[in-house]
Amino acid sequence: MKILVCVTKTPDTTAKIAFTDNNTKFAGDGVQWIINPYDEWYALVRAIELKEADAATVIHLITVGGADAEPIIRKALALGGDEAIRVNADSHDSFYIASQIAEVAKAGGYDLVFTGKETIDYNGSSIGGMVAELLDMPYVSLATKFTLNGSNAVIEREVDGGEETNQVALPVVVSCQKGMAEQRIPNMKGIMGARTKPLKVVEPAVAEALTSITSFDLPPAKAGVKLVSADNPEELVRLLHEEAKVF
């Protein structure tokens, strides 16, 4: 079994969101970068569990990003990836990134491609579907559970107001979210081992960017909270009904 796990770096969930260069760039200076939580906690850890259940499983990691993505790739290797590929390109266009991943995936002959549900910075929720289309593979999105049954995958996924179970023959592309696995912390052995694991840097394939970010805006500041006394909750109800008119 060969698994490709797509990982990317994102600002820490508590990072201050601000922009520079006339509101065209995220102010990344001084920001702590982490592995996108969906990629780390769910996609990667579930892949590691599959490897623990079957020693013949190989996990490759891929990131499309500049050299500044290497710390998070090393951390992903420390958690349990076998080797990593960094496609040396910096882009915010989903199609461009997906094209790079698809190029590597085609050459690698993977049974499974795992992505996170979305990146917590650009919130595209797009790469998995695009990669699947480019590889002509089935795609199961928003998976909450993944098990193997011979050469079939049995996957639970979120649907409106509940869950459904899907069955699909490998290979398949899966986007992963909460439920798939539990967060892990890399141990010393993993961290030491990660230093010598292969991290291959490849130049990007020719691909188009279909979109470009023109600028960023911050939402207008809230007017401030209107507090109502705990002795008079009826006043809150009156405000919601007559002022905010929300019910």
Partner: peptide, 13 residues
Amino acid sequence: VFSGKAFANVTIN
């Protein structure tokens, strides 16, 4: 973008 903490204006080319 940024989980509702900001907006991006994206041009489709």
